[in-house]
């Protein structure tokens, strides 16, 4: 049984088919990238996988359970228990320190544990910045806090939306390295990106175009390391 399965998903806004009969499977521990140009339906797909939206038609199975007909309240619970979210804009609470931002995810999930939150920050190399407010952190550091927040509750899927979109090359590499470590630990990663260099480090890349899956590329030489050259297949 796949960890995530989309079966004939449609998302229709009036005349617009944001997603048009999309089906895919993601196995446990897999690292998948979803690529596509603007307006291809990447964000809609991310919202549906992240339980922040429901499809107009089709099934979304997480751990074999169809969540496509669940109420908003249940979707919130599923999101909290199974999915860790990483955003392009980081979306840290600006008046909470780095460690408090990580504890916020614990607070809604189970019990806040400062020690554990500190360990998560240590994993992303930010233990010494734990007491800093987001405005005192660089973009790369904020994104690492966002990663620590996403992984703190040991989610089954980490869903990242353009995680390196606002980062320079150096920080992009740091974040991808973090993904690599998470993947090594057995975490399932779904990364939505339009950056080929970030997409190609995944085991598999799905290309969306006009709401349909147009291509699937399997990375035969998967290393989980970013390559800044012209040899990527995109």
């Amino acid at each position: 049984m796949s960890l995530l399965e989309l079966k004939n998903i449609y998302k229709i806004y009036g005349e617009l088919h944001a997603l048009d009969d999309v089906s895919l499977k993601v196995e446990k521990g897999e690292w998948v990238s979803i690529m596509g140009p603007s307006g291809s339906g990447k964000s809609t797909m991310m919202n549906i996988i992240g339980c922040m939206d429901k499809p107009s038609k089709g099934q979304v199975l997480i751990d074999g359970v169809d969540v496509s007909k669940e109420s908003k309240k249940n979707l919130t619970n599923i999101r909290r228990d199974k999915i860790g979210l990483i955003f392009q804009q980081f979306h840290l609470v600006n008046y909470l320190t780095a460690v408090e931002n990580v504890m916020l995810a614990q607070y809604y999930h189970s019990m806040p544990d400062e020690k554990e939150a500190m360990e998560a920050l240590e994993r992303v190399g930010l233990a010494d910045r734990a007491k800093h407010l987001p405005r005192q952190l660089s973009g790369g550091e904020q994104q690492r806090v966002c990663v620590a927040r996403a992984l703190i509750n040991y989610p089954e899927i980490i869903l990242a939306d353009e995680p390196t979109g606002n980062l320079d090359e150096k920080n992009e590499e740091i974040v991808v390295d973090l993904f690599h470590k998470l993947h090594d630990d057995g975490t399932t990663l779904i990364v939505v990106t339009h950056d080929p260099e970030v997409a190609e480090v995944a085991q598999r890349t799905l290309v969306l175009r006009d709401g349909k899956l147009s291509k699937e590329i399997v990375n035969e030489n998967f290393t989980g390391k970013i390559r800044f050259d012209d040899q990527n297949p995109f």
Partner: peptide
């Protein structure tokens, strides 16, 4: 609104 959206995204219920 953004902060509320984020809190909801990471699992906050309406009640909390």
């Amino acid at each position: 609104r953004k902060e509320i959206g984020l809190r909801k995204a990471i699992g906050a219920s309406d009640k909390s």
